[in-house]
Design a protein around this nucleic acid. Structure first.
Lengths: 202, 202
DNA sequence: CCACATAACTTGACACTGTCAAGATATGAT
DNA sequence: ATCATATCTTGACAGTGTCAAGTTATGTGG
């Protein structure tokens, strides 16, 4: 479909990326459980065992897809962060908005990444991009951690709230879409959040 | 294993429940993706197509498992709620603790239920127990919604926080178990939560 | 007690999946 | 032009979900 006329793919190293593309397309079409090595191969116009050569097994392809997902994740957060003023509140708000941008722009990748399934934790590109995402959030939270308090407290507070909000919005809206009308904006939720952490500061 | 000697199962209507047992055991052993109709059948000492007769397809069995999961979910919350004083703060705290009890007692069911996969929304037992869970949380939040404010705001705030905390605790601790040491207790997180919602009340 | 209707399974088949081994083929270096 | 190697293909095997058709138990009416 993407590669209509050419019967055999040029061996230019583009296949792994094309297979990840196909996998994401598959996730979008059939949900988190609909990933298949053979269908990815078919979408990329290669034989059914070609994905196995590059990714070893399904977990390998899943890890590559998750790596792509985390890439979009950090991009979304950094894009919002760069176009915000430098004061801590604006920065943290921007990070959270980026988080939600990612969840609504790539719902299947969001669900896939946080579905609880295990990826190859020894995969180097995956580990670096994933920890980069955590680092961004941690940095934005830093100004709000009280002196002589472990930073984890605030980080988990912020992270849990935005992640829980995104995750629940997603799953509930998938269940019954007409519920989107009564669903609160994130602004009011994050309003409460700032009341909480500034109260903790004093 | 559970039914060692008897070669053929008695037709007493116990098979559906036994298959759900087997499915949960399978989820515990192999994670969210390791569910299989045929293995459930083998564990219950019936033929490979027996699950299909009761649950139609894999989605049907999954829905039955999720129904069981939501049952434990509401049990955990109500158990904590009943052994708490009747003041609103203790009640809400109890609900949240029950939420986390469920997540740590049945991690595979927690992940399975909230993995984003679709269940049979027309399944009557599933729908009733699921909405009962939501009703419990909603009731506990009711005292905290400000007058002339939509209840969803506070509900989502509380729900997102406790769900996000549980979900992140789970997935991160699955990734690297030694992280459990630095992970904050829920008490301190819920402390911030109450600062937030009582600040909203005034 | 016996036929019989029906619920509860079993057997068998088909298309599909992941994964491995072995063969084919293009690409770049010598 | 030869050759080594990375990249892909072909073929096979075990396992999966799902359906159709056959079998067996169970309880009900005669």
């Amino acid at each position: 479909m993407t590669d209509a006329p050419t019967k055999a793919r040029k061996r230019d190293g583009s296949l792994p990326s094309a297979l990840v593309d196909a996998g994401i397309e598959l996730l979008r079409e059939r949900g988190s459980g609909g990933l298949s090595l053979r269908e990815c191969a078919a979408k990329a116009n290669v034989s059914h065992a070609a994905p196995g050569y590059h990714f070893k097994n399904l977990k390998g392809l899943s890890t590559a897809i998750a790596t792509r997902g985390f890439g979009h994740f950090v991009d979304a957060m950094e894009k919002r962060r760069k176009s915000a003023t430098t004061n801590p509140k604006a920065q943290l708000e921007a990070i959270c908005q980026g988080y939600l941008d990612f969840a609504s722009d790539y719902p299947e990748l969001f669900l896939f990444i946080f579905s609880g399934q295990q990826f190859n934790k020894d995969d180097e590109p995956f580990e670096t991009v994933a920890s980069k995402a955590y680092a961004i959030l941690r940095e934005a939270c830093a100004p709000y951690v009280p002196t002589e308090s472990r930073p984890e407290e605030i980080e988990i507070l912020v992270w849990s709230l935005v992640h829980g909000f995104a995750h629940l919005s997603m799953t509930r809206k998938l269940d019954n879409p007409q519920l989107g009308r009564t669903w609160p904006d994130f602004d009011v939720v994050i309003g409460h959040l700032f009341k909480s952490i500034t109260a903790a500061q004093e």
